[in-house]
């Protein structure tokens, strides 16, 4: 079932992430067909764990080692020319979710890391020497890594 079709009976559908709705094509309870919205479930959005496996992977990359210095000031996003055009690409946020290990959020946003044009402005303004540009490289490799993160 496509994402738009899922949970279309929920009145406030637009506030619910696609990934949180489970609505199988066919659902039966004791011989009674409850497919569609009768059988829809909406998963909670609570963060339940800090998974640091992704962070380890990023840190093992040559230019990703500085990720731990980040204190979330937002200078990188402020100056990033891509972020101004594409709000879904936010280097500060990517660094945070990888650092904390919010796996669902990483899963949702991991492809945005390829928006990075590699201009290096972020690294030039970072007050803590995180080298966000390098971290973005490390992340884009880590996200595709087979041993890393699923």
């Amino acid at each position: 079932m496509s994402d738009e079709e899922k949970g279309k009976h929920i009145v406030e559908r637009k506030y619910v992430d696609d990934s949180r709705i489970i609505e199988p094509e066919k659902l039966e309870i004791g011989g009674i067909d409850v497919s569609g919205h009768w059988g829809t479930l909406v998963l909670p959005r609570t963060i339940e764990d800090f998974d640091n496996s992704m962070l380890k992977k990023v840190k093992s990359m040559p230019r990703g080692k500085n990720i731990e210095k980040c204190w979330q000031c937002g200078n990188c996003t402020a100056i990033c020319p891509v972020a101004h055009a594409h709000p879904e690409f936010n280097p500060r946020y990517l660094i945070h979710i990888v650092k904390m290990g919010y796996s669902a959020e990483v899963e949702k946003l991991k492809d945005t890391v390829y928006f990075c044009s590699g201009c290096g402005l972020c690294s030039s303004v970072c007050p803590k020497g995180v080298d966000p540009q390098g971290v973005m490289i490390a992340m884009s490799i880590a996200f595709k890594s087979k041993k890393g993160y699923r």
Partner: peptide, 10 residues
Amino acid sequence: AGAWCEENFH
């Protein structure tokens, strides 16, 4: 490849 370099020079 170059669209989001912040300066044309770059």
